[in-house]
């Protein structure tokens, strides 16, 4: 089958067949806290959170995400362009500098956030029309979309 697994920063192609079997034919099964790969048993602990999987294996903690192959290739085709201003860390919006619907240029200051007592100014990643998704005083988690820039053409 096609598809990808994101393991931390690593993207690993999924090569599996029914069984399930790994690409080399080894049969895999799970029994309580043990993962069995072709007769070899690994102690394992895991927990699912939506499309993410947390695994404790071999003394390391791994964060996995299933990457849909269609989505993966679409993102790659888009050239990684990103007009969403995502929160670099959890925090709170101190103040808005630009306003909703404003025509902004790349590098313009949009809003000020505070996290760990440090204030950071977030700037426009591209030219376009600004849409704000947060208000002053609002808290957010890491990765939350704070603003989107829509190109004018």
């Amino acid at each position: 089958m096609q598809g990808y697994l994101r393991i931390g920063e690593t993207i690993a192609p999924l090569a599996l067949s029914k069984g399930p079997r790994l690409a080399d034919g080894r049969l895999v099964s799970l029994e309580a806290d043990w993962l069995d790969i072709g007769g070899e048993r690994w102690p394992i602990a895991y927990a699912r959170d939506g499309d993410r999987l947390w695994v404790h294996l071999g003394g390391q903690i791994h964060e996995l995400a299933w990457v849909d192959p269609v989505a993966f290739h679409e993102a790659a085709a888009a050239g990684g362009s990103n007009n969403i201003v995502a929160a670099p860390m959890p925090g709170v919006v101190v103040r808005l500098i630009a306003s909703e619907g404003q025509d902004v240029a790349e590098g313009d200051p949009l809003l000020v956030i505070e996290s760990m007592k440090l204030e950071t100014t977030l700037r426009a990643p591209a030219d376009g029309i600004l849409a704000l998704h947060v208000a002053a005083g609002q808290g957010f988690d890491r990765g939350a979309p704070l603003a989107t820039i829509t190109p004018k053409d």
């Binding site: 393991i7 999924l14 090569a15 399930p20 895999v28 394992i44 999987l53 294996l57 791994h62």
Partner: peptide
């Protein structure tokens, strides 16, 4: 490790 994690994904991620 990738093998083991891939195997686990096949067993517990419904999409896979």
């Amino acid at each position: 490790t990738i093998d083991a994690l891939t195997a686990l994904a096949a067993l517990v991620i419904p999409d896979v």
